[in-house]
């Protein structure tokens, strides 16, 4: 008579190898959290002394004076660091980019989602992906050498015929390398990301609603107006905000195209201005150790700004994606 085997122990406790596996994967999964945490920690740590001495005026002040003598002693004028002007420039150029690039991107997304034949769509979607991978220095070089002339022409037209609007006035007729042209380049840079987010949202429009609209005799535009836009509206807004975040953080292209002058320039056609990132690049080369700290603080402000815009945008996009399924 065979002995009765012992009862198998049923357990849902993972094996040892699985526990190691899960540990490693979890560790890897949380790297992004760690990196984001470290970025804010270190930039804050290096810039803390400047942030503390300047206080809130660091982001509202329009003065950036670094007076350190070559031997490292404090200069005669007191140093003061305020990124207000560059913060204003960041927002101005990003908004110009969004106002020009946003509509184009949304229209292109509508075309890709509802008008393009399948093969054309596949091809154009890869073109959009490719455009998103163009290096930003390429946009800078192209903007400086090719787009500049067209941009100046448009700027002159705007100034001549819409000059009565305050933002289109210029004290001196210098249209070269203006925030407007920088915004134009940024617009072209953000078009691919806004287009691909908007297209993905539009592509998720429930098919039954589209067909219902057609069955009721709607034209394509009536369908888009009644079904696609209400469905995708907030997702497209989120996509546009993602574009805004990109435009705010853009460095090399703005530095190349824009004539970097430390002042808040709201006459967008005048060739002077800057944004936070380009300011950091400009000052970094010959900065004293004290000014480096101020630049780190500026980087921290830029990081927080873009992170906030991005998180909000992702939140809006994710919420839209879940709806209506």
């Amino acid at each position: 008579m065979r002995p009765i085997p012992e009862a198998r122990v049923l357990t849902n406790k993972p094996r040892f190898s699985d526990r190691i596996f899960r540990g490693i994967v979890t560790l890897g999964g949380f790297t992004s959290l760690v990196i984001l945490g470290l970025i804010s920690l270190f930039l804050l740590y290096r810039g803390f002394s400047v942030l503390r001495s300047e206080g809130f005026s660091f982001i509202t002040d329009y003065e950036w004076v670094s007076s350190i003598n070559s031997d490292g002693t404090e200069g005669e004028v007191a140093s003061t660091y305020g990124v207000g002007a560059m913060l204003a420039g960041t927002i101005v150029t990003a908004i110009i980019a969004l106002l020009i690039g946003g509509p184009v991107a949304v229209l292109a997304a509508l075309y890709l989602a509802f008008y393009a034949p399948i093969r054309t769509r596949k091809f154009l979607v890869s073109v959009v992906d490719l455009m998103a991978a163009f290096p930003s220095i390429l946009f800078g070089l192209w903007g400086l050498n090719v787009l500049m002339d067209q941009g100046i022409y448009v700027a002159e037209l705007l100034n001549r015929y819409l000059g009565w609007i305050p933002i289109f006035q210029v004290p001196v007729p210098v249209f070269l390398r203006s925030p407007f042209i920088a915004g134009l380049v940024l617009a072209i840079m953000i078009i691919p990301i806004v287009t691909s987010v908007a297209r993905e949202i539009f592509a998720q429009t429930p098919l039954d609603r589209i067909q219902a609209a057609y069955a009721l005799g709607a034209t394509r535009w009536a369908m888009i107006k009644a079904v696609a836009i209400p469905y995708g509206y907030s997702g497209v807004v989120g996509g546009a905000m993602l574009g805004l975040g990109r435009a705010m953080g853009e460095t090399v292209a703005v530095f190349t195209v824009l004539n970097i002058v430390y002042r808040a320039n709201f006459d967008i056609l005048l060739g002077a201005g800057g944004n936070l990132a380009s300011h950091i690049i400009l000052k970094f080369g010959e900065a004293s150790s004290e000014e480096i700290k101020a630049l780190m603080a500026a980087g921290f402000v830029l990081f927080l700004l873009t992170l906030a815009v991005n998180l909000l945008a992702d939140f809006i996009v994710a919420r839209t994606g879940k709806r209506g399924k």
Partner: peptide, 30 residues
């Protein structure tokens, strides 16, 4: 794993893709 932190991580990865490239450089420098 679809761990408890999945939603958070997905958001953070998205947010990380929007970090300005200059900030990555500044971070390593700092």
């Amino acid at each position: 794993l679809k761990g408890r932190g999945s939603t958070l991580i997905r958001f953070l990865v998205q947010a990380m893709s929007g970090i300005p490239s200059i900030v990555a450089g500044l971070f390593i420098y700092s």
